[in-house]
Amino acid sequence: MTLVSDANLDTSPPSGSPPDPPPGGLSRRRKPPNRSAILVTAIMFVVSIYFLLPAYWLVVSSTKGPTSLYSSEGLWFSHFDLWKNLRGVFSYNGGIFVRWILNTVIYAGVGSFFATLLSALAGYALAKYRFKGRELVFGIILGGVLVPGTALALPLYLMMSKVHLTNSYWSVLLPSIVSPFGVYLARVYATSAVPDELLEAARVDGSGEGRTFFKISMRLMSPALVTIFLFQFVAIWNNFFLPLVMLSNEKLYPVTLGLYTWNNEYGQAPQLVSYVIIGAAISVIPLIIAFLSLQRFWRSGLAAGSLTF
């Protein structure tokens, strides 16, 4: 931490130079490098090695076949089998990997879309309407945030097996649509971002409540909605326990469960080791793209949510 204070000594201009324009949001003052900047950057560089090295290993290893994976130096390239691995991962077992990716996109995409919509509706209702029992309903939903999803998965399985819903798309999709945290975030955001006057004006103009919500309020809530969407998307994409419990048909697997299965099966087919590695690398790409392209939105939504928790 002393580094940071050093930074101050060097960077804050005691006199002379005109004060910087107030830095807004992300734009940051660029200063000529100095000792503390180098130190801070060096620290962050070292830390980033910790975060990036395993990912680097993943990329390097995805270019190796099963034999050179075991025999070559882990952190450097060896026999270049990337294309062979790519062909293999996409064609193994009738191209089931593609199906797993598609399943994951369906689970995560459809699931988080509806989760966002439902959370927005519910959060908006809780923020903008006063009715009896509102705080109680909100309290119960908030309680839901604190109940771990995996603790629910087992009871859900027991319940769904009674109605023969296990081992189906629905068994994974439907529970994923419920996001109590999404409702919380939507309510908090709607409270401050949707002015009552605007709603009143809409009513005076004769706009119906539903129309007002979809035409006006939702747009105002969009940073929060993007945040909810992305976090639910990641939550579903990462979810392993629910599909593990619910699904027994490989064709319904999301990519996480599929790769886990392969990882347990390479004793029967050694090339699966390479497919697991390259499959893992591939499955990460869509998520990273989603986060990068939408980061401006979700960060502001997140800030609002976390600051008022």
Partner: peptide
């Protein structure tokens, strides 16, 4: 750096564990 630190979050838990 923000991206570098955040990257692992994009890797699902099971996959990270396998890795």
């Amino acid at each position: 750096f923000r991206l570098a630190f955040f990257l692992p979050y994009g890797i699902p838990g099971v996959i990270a564990a396998i890795l």
